[in-house]
Amino acid sequence: MKSNTNVLIALGLEGSANKVGVGVISHDLSTGAVEILSNIRHTHITPPGTGFLPRDTAAHHREHILPVLTEALKVAGIETEDIDVICYTKGPGMGAPLISVAVVARTLSLLWNKPLVGVNHCVGHIEMGRQVTGAENPVVLYVSGGNTQVIAYAEQRYRIFGETLDIAVGNCLDRFARVLNLPNDPSPGYNIEQYAKRGEKFIELPYTVKGMDVSFSGILSHIESIAPDLLSRNECTPEDLCFSLQETLFAMLVETTERAMAHIGSKEVLIVGGVGCNLRLQSMMAQMAEQRDGKVFATDERYCIDNGIMIAHAGLLAFRSGYTTPLENSTCTQRYRTDEVFVKWRE
């Protein structure tokens, strides 16, 4: 049991996509120390060639959230009375999976008589990335299966400088993985990355940057339509296609990030979100930063990939600034833009 009243402990529950995660974090108000007490996750993995559907994903979350929760509390070594606040993902994400997790958060809040905080998933990623890397005021590239945004902080909000005009970069990679029938274990993007490492030949693909915005759907349609033909005629290998796709998509992301850095005069970049684990993306970003005397911050799969701890962390920051979500407002929303959140906890 915790003895120090200067320590606040938050429980975070996440389930906006195919991962259900629970994390426990503590903030020591007197020293400013942040400690990750546990970070448990379970992923809904579907057969190769398929994606994950809202209904099945919600069923997966319902099945696994209690064991994940029990495990998270056990690893953290805390009692329920030690918890000060329960944080859950309000959105954005898939409706049914979000709701399946929010129900648990509400129940725990009533059962244990603890306040609730609804957290914006994107802000969770950003705050966790800042915490883990120590980046102070970076331009943030948030890249995942559902989101692609170039973000910078100004006046109490995370402002979106550029974003995808259609599908997310991770969605583009995942859907191409289905074309090649790559396994979804541990994730389709990871398998594309491994294939890309062995690719040699660069196949030209469309390149769509509009100012600071990007568009991926045309690239996906194009590569989907040329792939079967190129492969059957042995003009290139699946590895070459993965390589070319990654090179093209990531060049677009790095270019728009660089433009945002030049625009606001920042020297730091932070990459967050599932696609942020990709080492090729990290190294391209590092090369760009080097040409501008800048620096890249990135995290590994524990924090890049959706997790409960980031929800606990961002929720606790909001809670410390006096914010709670009353039970009657503890809804979920599939659309919840990063810049809708009033960031009271930052200068």
């Binding site: 660069f202 093209t248 790095v254 391209m284 970003m285 090369q287 760009m288 080097e290 040409q291």
Partner: peptide, 10 residues
């Protein structure tokens, strides 16, 4: 200037 992060062809 040449962007070193980009594939030379691109």
């Amino acid at each position: 200037f040449r962007k070193t992060y980009r594939h030379p062809l691109l």
